[in-house]
Structures are given as C-alpha cells and as structure tokens.
Amino acid sequence: MSSARRRGRPRLGPTVDNRERILTTAREMFSESGFERTTMRAIGRRAGVDPALIHHYFGTKNDLLVAALRPEVDVSTVFAGIAEADTSVGCEFVHRVVDLWESDPQQRARAVALLRIAVTHEEIADRLREFFLGVATGVLGQFVHADQLERRVALVMSQMLGLVLARYVMRVPGIAEASAAELSRWVGPTIDNYLFGEQ
C-alpha cells in the first residue's frame, strides 16, 4: 500500500466542528502573536487539523484573518424599523451602530483588531471596505437620494469609520466617553446630510 498522502479535499473529523475550531484558534493566535508572526501551520498545529483544511475552508491567511475577526452581525435585526424611529434616519443609524459596538465587548475587540491591521494591509483593507460598504448600502440604500448614490454611501461609511476609530482605537476625549444618544445627536445630522442633502 502506498504511503503517499492522498490528494483532494482534506478529511474532516467525524465529531468536531473543524471550522469553528480553526476560527477560535486563529483569534487566539492573532491576538497573542499578531498577524505577521502567526502562520497557518501554527494555527493548524494548535487546532489539531491539517493546514490544508484551513486553506480549504478559508483560502489565504488574509481571508482567515477577516473571517476570524469580522463581527458576526445580523444586519436585518440590528437595523430593523430604522425609518419608524422617533429620530431621523441618520441619528437612529448612528445610535444603533454605537449600541452594537457597545453591546458585545468581545466582538468589538475583534473588530478593532481588524481595523488596526487593515490600516497597513491593503488586501485586508479591501475586504473590510467591501463589508462596511455592503452594510451601509443594505441599511441605508432605500433612503439615499439617487444622485451621487455611491458617493453618499461612501461618505456615510467614512464618517462612521472615523467615529469608531476615534472612540475605540484612539480614545479621543469627548468621543470615547460620550453616550450613544449624545453621539447620535452630534453625528446624525451629518449622516442625514450625506443621505439627503443637496449637492
């Protein structure tokens, strides 16, 4: 019998959720050692799986990083009924985004780590940009004026990314300690202007 490794799809363990094990291990190791010093081989060794299985599920290390650190958000639930709120769409959007970041410290830490890495890694920045643009378009697309739609959504995303970076990464005084309601009153009108304002 040949001892050569069989080619094709890596064998899955019969009782273990290998994908979740890989994601959990990747989060731990990216947090402990950073992105550059963490290898797919090391993740596979700690997770007890063949590194080929990681490539099968996630592709490259960049893909694995995004999958491991990107927050798990049910956008339809978080932003349901946004137009029926007592405040403007912009104010309600800001309030819900901040509430989302505040509600789950573990997921917030993962998202902040991903933002930090995206600043210096172009491919990861591309993936993250696609995610945030997709969320903004999905939530606000029905409210945006048709003229300059793509630019309007991009400006909303840039405003919210700036707010998140100032609050959770740079810890800017006046923003870091503000409540969701306070931030929505200050930033919401700017979002409304991006969505509906005359250009």
Rank of each mutant, 00 (worst) to 15 (best):
V139M: 04
R7C: 09
R185H: 12
H55T: 14
E20D: 15
S88G: 09
V75R: 08
P71Q: 05
S179C: 03
E36L: 05
L161W: 04
W186V: 15
G34E: 04
P10V: 07
G34W: 01
V49K: 08
S3F: 15
Q199R: 14
V75N: 06
R70T: 11
I117L: 13
F93V: 02
V144Y: 05
I54S: 06
S103Q: 09
A80Q: 10
G197S: 10
V112P: 03
F93W: 07
S33Y: 14
I54P: 02
F30I: 09
H55M: 13
Y194V: 04
Y168H: 10
Y194S: 07
A176K: 00
A111E: 10
S2L: 12
T60V: 08
L128A: 06
R127M: 13
L163Y: 04
F131N: 11
R7P: 05
V169D: 10
I82R: 00
A166G: 03
R21F: 08
L155H: 10
S76P: 04
E28G: 02
H145N: 15
R46H: 11
V187L: 03
Y194E: 08
R11Q: 14
E122S: 12
E123K: 12
Y194I: 03
V164E: 11
Q148C: 13
V156D: 03
N62M: 10
D74C: 09
L12K: 13
E150L: 09
H121S: 09
R21G: 14
H55K: 14
A109Q: 07
V78R: 05
M1V: 12
A154T: 08
V97Q: 04
V94Y: 01
V139L: 03
D104F: 00
L100Y: 00
R116K: 12
V98I: 15
R46N: 06
R21W: 11
L155M: 14
A80C: 07
L149M: 14
T38M: 01
W186D: 10
R37Q: 14
E84F: 08
A4D: 14
E123M: 09
V119C: 09
R185G: 05
G174F: 02
M170C: 06
N193E: 12
I22F: 07
H95S: 07
S88L: 05
T87P: 01
A111T: 01
P105H: 04
Y57Q: 05
Q148H: 15
L155C: 12
L149K: 14
R9T: 15
R70D: 09
E20M: 13
A47R: 00
V169M: 07
L100E: 00
D86N: 11
D99M: 03
E102R: 01
L163E: 00
E32C: 05
